[in-house]
Design a binder for these strands. Structure first.
Length: 428
RNA sequence: GGGGGAGUGUCCCGAGUGGCAAAGGGGGCGGACUGUAAAUCCGCUGCGUCAGCUUCGUUGGUUCGAGUCCAACCUCCCCCA
């Protein structure tokens, strides 16, 4: 990690202290600018999925910190760049998304930002733009003449993301090669439109950020700045939020606030302090106190981390509901109504055959709960003894339940896979 | 354009002799131990009313039988132009 130096601006001092800082293209320059005026800064987000995931949370928090320090954040939706596709650090050219998919993804992603940032027309309010606004309109020859001539092939080839492709003989088309130019052009365009002076992102975007700064210097003779954050991994080395089992989505339709809370609650001991600093607004001295806790006492800190991080993403109410549901479930051992509920059609015979009216096998229920992906999967999990229904351990996948087995408090069957995954299955 | 090589269980990497639901990793999930932690050990990781069914880039073909042989096509890589 590069030198952090002694920053004088409130924003950068805090940025370092909170663990967001990785590198900066011009430390003194940016530090001075931030002290002098309200700075407009942006981060771009591609629309490759219908939701952002916790891996993006670091970036969104950067914008939040900027806003807290009185600066103006711009969220740039990559409606245009996603059509090109970021080649960085991917082994394959990912299949091109259709324009419809990109548009749908963008619409779904927009909502995620509402709780992290305050949008509006005021001087420090966040704004959101889509780079398709200008990228879609580009004309090839004029663009090459105005912008393309400033890009030296030699230097582009030396960029880390490009070199990796070339060095390992990975597929790499001219289309992807242009991604970096598009991103550089974004920075220039944002400067022209909004006076944006700063681009932030993860450290993997360094090359693209620098390209934008160079371009703006040549074209507009202006000094722009870049600021990067470290790639977040857990202490065990795993990349955050992108497990094979499924990303930790920020969108509540794709991952409920309760499950989001659980994700943070299960943080490794060694990460608690670091995550509190990055992903919550908890005061520094309070974090200092929390991370000193030892052994099981550290669980208190994890609950605060979970609630605070969830509150920023899903709102205070949802976070406290999730905390309360977890408390009742795991500390009191009762069936809490706030657990995820899945409705299941019990109106006809057993879905897997005429086994009996309005009865469902344990395996079918487990599949219906979403905790198993198929009946085979459900049977396997039940046979392993990992499943409980209504708090009773079961081993027979064919054991039958009827709608009247629903627990009166919730009107649902309590289906549990493993120790932590609980879903209420409501017969409909 | 010419020559050579490669595409395996849809998370990734990767063995594979004509009899294979297909070795082995990693990752993930579950169990034990704990503190809803880490580490460690064990198990699971295509679908199915367990008879079977469908997987090895795509489509045809040879064969009792093909991931394995043949042909064409698609994609990628390397060398030559």
């Amino acid at each position: 990690m590069p030198e952090t130096g002694d920053f004088k601006s409130e924003f950068l001092r805090n940025f370092v202290k909170r663990g967001h800082y990785y590198d900066c293209t011009d430390r003194d320059g940016l530090d001075g600018l931030l002290r002098k005026e309200r700075v407009t800064a942006y981060i771009g987000f591609d629309c490759t999925a219908p939701s952002l995931h916790v891996g993006h949370a670091m970036q969104i928090m950067t914008l939040r910190r900027l806003q807290q320090a009185g600066h103006r954040p711009i969220v740039v939706m990559g409606g245009g760049t996603t059509k090109v596709g970021d080649p960085s650090f991917r082994n394959e050219a990912r299949p091109l998304l259709s324009e419809e998919e990109i548009a749908a993804n963008k619409q779904a992603i927009l909502k995620s930002f509402r709780n992290f940032l305050t949008f509006g027309d005021g001087p420090g309010d966040a704004i959101m733009v889509d780079n398709a606004e200008w990228l879609d309109k580009l004309e090839y020859i004029p663009f090459l003449r105005e912008i393309g001539r400033h890009f030296a092939i030699g230097r582009m080839l030396s960029m880390e993301s490009v070199r990796a492709k070339l060095d390992y003989d990975l597929p790499f088309s001219f289309l992807e090669f242009n991604y970096s130019i598009m991103q550089a052009y974004d920075f220039l365009e944002l400067y022209r439109r909004y006076g944006c002076r700063l681009q932030s992102s993860g450290s993997d975007q360094w090359g693209n950020i620098v390209s934008g700064i160079d371009l703006a210097r040549r074209v507009e003779n202006v000094q722009l700045f870049g600021l990067t954050t470290p790639l977040i991994t857990t202490s065990s080395g795993a990349k955050m939020g992108k497990t094979a089992a499924g990303a930790v989505w920020l969108n509540p339709e794709m991952r409920s606030p309760y499950d989001y809370w659980q994700f943070w609650r299960n943080t490794e001991d060694a990460d608690v302090g670091r995550f509190l600093r990055i992903f919550t607004d908890v005061a520094d001295d309070e974090i200092a106190r929390l991370e000193k806790l030892q052994g099981a006492d550290l669980n208190e800190a994890k609950k605060i981390l979970a609630t605070e991080a969830t509150a920023i993403c899903h709102g205070r109410k949802a976070a406290e509901d999730a905390a309360e549901t977890a408390r009742r479930t795991f500390e009191e051992g009762v069936t809490a109504a706030g657990l995820p509920v899945v409705e299941m059609d019990w109106s006809a015979g057993d879905i897997s055959g005429e086994r009996g009216f309005r009865e469902r096998s344990a395996a079918a229920i487990l599949k219906g709960s979403g905790l198993a992906t198929s009946l085979s999967d459900a049977r396997r999990k039940i046979a392993e003894g990992a499943v409980r229904i209504n708090d009773a351990s079961i081993s027979d996948p064919e054991k039958l339940y009827r709608a009247s087995d629903a627990q009166p408090e919730t009107g649902a069957l309590k289906v549990q896979y493993g120790k932590k995954k609980i879903v209420l299955v409501k017969p409909v």
